[in-house]
Design a protein around this nucleic acid. Structure first.
Lengths: 341, 341
DNA sequence: TCGTAACAATGAAACGATTCAAAGGCGAGA
DNA sequence: TCTCGCCTTTGAATCGTTTCATTGTTACGA
């Protein structure tokens, strides 16, 4: 169990100076072919691998970007992270992934960790009130781009989707089908995305005479939570059911669907039209294929890295807020009975 | 944009030696309360954060474990990684996550990266033939635990699920329902998990007179790939259809289901019984709730970290191969017509 | 043949935290 | 008052890499 070879070992083995070995690795054209070959052979023979810690100690920063998401289990973020990873790789950077799980403490923990790692920058979809911490980080040359969250442009760049517009789209779609007793499922409302989607839905409902929207707070964002809401909805009896349900995300919608159709025989979309949000892969393979609002996750991830790179490169960057507009995806769960032959 | 504060800055600010600051951080009880308070105040005022690069340079290793999975999009791995993360956190270690995407080059790339990072150890669910590289790493004090893959115990520890037993369970279940014309969907067969599941299925089929199993190679492991297989199955016409399909994972099964039921009106389970593998969250909310084989992902992740820790602690550890047995989960997609009233 | 420019290779210094042998300070007991 | 021992604090050495001013070498034109 021998210690890992260092650049010094390589230098000795190849009979050159340490600086030369370093040049072979970082400035190959400054080194003559003869020497280079000798060094490369030594590297090979010793199985030398660069020590990144020493490297970034010298450099003062790593080649790493920290990403803190709300929930890695959520396909929206999985997809986003993957796009960010690919985009970062182009610049030779790797991604460190942290999952806050909607918990401000865990979030804070990851910011600590990433700060210790001296990440180049941060992509974060914040839970708690971390603006001041991030501001302090920025002052030290570690920029942050907020993801899935519109930022105050004076302070940070951000990439987001217009959740209000998404909520409007969803509710408007239900209203266009002739539904009037709408319900919004989502929670906790303290999450900005959730409350924005609700606000958009309210806006749409306000435009239509005789339309009403009730809010059903869910305990979390999972299929299970959705099922819970569905079950409590069923307890009301058929007369008090909404005829259109908009869920703050697809997982909730799938849970609601499960509860209504499988356990209680409610027909979707005939009795109740249902629409989710995020358009995850599984939306299409639900009991009744689920209508949803699609967010351009790839573009979000890519753009986030782009904005971060801008901030890293420029001396006094202007912060930018890029807002993507989501898109309505109609499937069977809201295929209006009118539309069905 | 000031440089980040170093331990030296803290020492100056608090009027103590650098060694004292280090002691405050690492051996608080060696320092008098008076001094400690002064140092802590300085740390606070300067916003000092430990530089992990310097720390691990000195230490010779990081407090990090590298994890390379086949596909982060696959909930099996997401769940496994999360469990591993939690288990590692108990030892004060963090996890670096790499996604090989079934690509030996990407896998190799991540091993390089993690080696540069001087990870303490590696959890890997290998694609290519990396045994020799991992062996070399182990010789240098960086142990590996193979995940979801039975290892040669002479060389590595491993945590796996008995895929052969799982395949047997699935096929046996279909046979018990009276199905005789079985099909196995999965690919590429070069992936050990896939071929093991197939082998188990073959074993079950061999036990029953008049039972046959055909193999349908899928192009990947996604819902889309499954849909592709389903479509090409439909082109055969009704007479040539299998009456029981076993898919190497749930994503494939959902794709097949989609193709057969939604696009082609095949009844599941009446015409064709369908079973998947992994029992992902969405299995239960598919068009027809999907029977599956459940793997204990949490236990796998936890155990993997446990084995790794053993190898790190012991001088001459004995390698262990822990094999979990999967479990049959019956849902509607194989609820035998016999069983339905 | 000499001078000079272009090119190669050198090796010491620096990055920031940890470690550890050594020094300093203090009080108690002789 | 002196000594011994204990507790606290010190600061130089170390980890492995990169950088850069310096030295050494070569080739070419005058």
């Amino acid at each position: 169990m021998s210690r890992a070879a260092s650049i010094k070992d390589v230098a000795n083995h190849a009979q050159v100076a340490v600086g030369t070995v370093s040049n072979v690795l970082n400035n190959p054209d400054r080194v003559s072919k003869r020497t280079k070959d000798r060094v490369l052979q030594a590297i090979d023979e010793l199985g030398f691998v660069r020590n990144d810690a020493a490297r970034q100690l010298r450099a003062g920063h790593s080649r790493t970007i920290g990403v803190v998401v709300l929930d890695v289990g959520n396909p929206f973020f999985t997809s986003l992270v993957r796009a960010a990873e690919d985009a970062a790789a182009v610049n030779g950077s790797a991604v460190l992934l942290g999952d806050s799980g909607h918990d401000a403490n865990r979030e804070s923990h990851y910011i600590d960790l990433f700060q210790e790692q001296r990440v180049q920058g941060l992509l974060i979809s914040p839970v708690g009130d971390v603006a001041d911490r991030l501001e302090a980080l920025r002052q030290r040359g570690v920029p942050t781009v907020l993801v899935d969250r519109l930022a105050d442009e004076d302070r940070f760049s951000s990439v987001s989707v217009d959740d209000d517009a998404g909520g409007y789209l969803a509710a408007r779609h239900l209203l266009d089908l002739g539904r009037r007793k709408l319900a919004f499922v989502g929670g906790p409302l303290s999450i900005r995305q959730v409350s924005d989607r609700l606000a958009g839905a309210r806006r749409a409902v306000a435009e239509v005479d005789g339309a009403a929207l009730e809010v059903l707070d869910s305990d979390g964002q999972s299929v299970l939570a959705g099922r819970g809401v569905g079950n409590s909805l069923m307890e009301r009896g058929a007369g008090n059911m909404p005829d259109g349900i908009f869920c703050a995300n697809d997982l909730l919608a799938l849970g609601v669907m499960q509860s209504l159709t499988m356990m209680n025989g409610v027909r979707i979309p005939d009795d109740v039209a249902l629409i989710g949000y995020d358009d995850i892969d599984f939306a299409v393979s639900a009991v009744v294929p689920l209508s949803s609002i699609r967010q351009p996750t790839d573009a979000i991830g890519r753009t986030a890295i782009e904005l971060l790179t801008e901030e890293l490169d420029a001396q006094h960057p202007r912060h930018r807020a890029v807002v993507f507009t989501p898109e309505l995806v109609v499937r069977q769960s809201t295929a209006g009975v009118e539309a069905t032959p």
